[in-house]
């Protein structure tokens, strides 16, 4: 346990709380990279996922794509892109975007798919146009699962952004790799604890968000469980945190 105390002492050492190599700078780097990647991945994956979810076309392709990406070793991808583009910030961002797209895509289309088809048919029957169905029915009802997808994407990004310093991306991973090179275990441990804290905080925020975005109509009906299950098969998505409702 002494090691743990050393690690906390390292974190709260005034020398590490400021300056160009301090914790705040590395934290900001980590957050900036993560946020940028999340935004880029969302801009690409959400419209695509909505298109797949709304039309039902290309679903099997999307399922096998999101499943297949799980087999892709993140470290290998980071390194191959880094060797290709050189050390710097572009390589990690591209690699991270590639890794973040599948969970966001899965969240977007599975959100649409989890909706009872009868709800959508009713919307069509009362005369809603396709655009209105997407905007007023599918997007609100699919939002909790989309947030779930963003949640696993964010976890993936925070975790891989830590690894990304292996190719010089900066961020909190820097403490781990500097500690590793200089055999400074308390610094490695301190970096690890900071990343874990960041991951758990983001997990908490997304869990809360996921609860908040459930439409009021659905919440009101939750006791009666009026939302009948989807008639389409639910895809197995590799996250224990997603909603199965």
């Amino acid at each position: 346990m002494n090691l743990l105390i050393d690690a906390f002492a390292w974190i709260f050492d005034p020398a590490h709380l400021g300056g160009p190599n301090g914790i705040p700078i590395r934290l900001v780097q980590h957050l900036t990279i993560s946020l940028a990647v999340l935004v880029i991945a969302s801009v690409i994956a959400i419209p695509l996922g909505y298109l797949i979810g709304h039309t039902g076309r290309g679903r099997s392709l999307a399922v096998s794509l999101t499943g297949g990406f799980r087999a892709l070793p993140t470290l290998g991808l980071l390194i191959i892109v880094a060797l290709w583009l050189g050390i710097g910030i572009e390589a990690p961002i591209i690699a991270l975007v590639v890794l973040a797209i599948p969970p966001v895509l899965a969240g977007a289309y599975s959100g649409f798919e989890a909706i009872d088809r009868r709800t959508i048919d009713s919307a069509r029957a009362v005369g809603m146009t396709e655009g209105q169905i997407v905007r007023k029915v599918e997007v609100p009802l699919g939002l909790p699962l989309l947030i779930g997808g963003l949640r696993s994407a964010t976890l993936q990004i925070i975790a891989t952004a830590t690894l990304a310093d292996y190719v010089g991306a900066g961020g909190l991973g820097r403490f781990i790799f500097v500690g590793l090179k200089s055999n400074d275990y308390s610094q490695m441990l301190a970096g690890s604890l900071l990343v874990i804290a960041l991951a758990l905080i983001s997990e908490g925020i997304f869990a809360l968000l996921q609860k908040l975005v459930v439409p009021r109509g659905v919440v009101a009906n939750q006791n009666a469980d009026v939302r009948t299950p989807s008639s389409r098969r639910v895809a197995v998505v590799g996250s224990p945190t997603e909603e199965r409702k």
Binding site: L155, I158, T162, G173, I176, M188, S192, V195, I196, L200
Partner: peptide, 14 residues
């Protein structure tokens, strides 16, 4: 769920 949220490299170090 929280356990799963812990990134792999930090977990290997802790």
């Amino acid at each position: 769920g929280l356990l799963y949220a812990i990134p792999s490299l930090p977990l290997l170090i802790v």
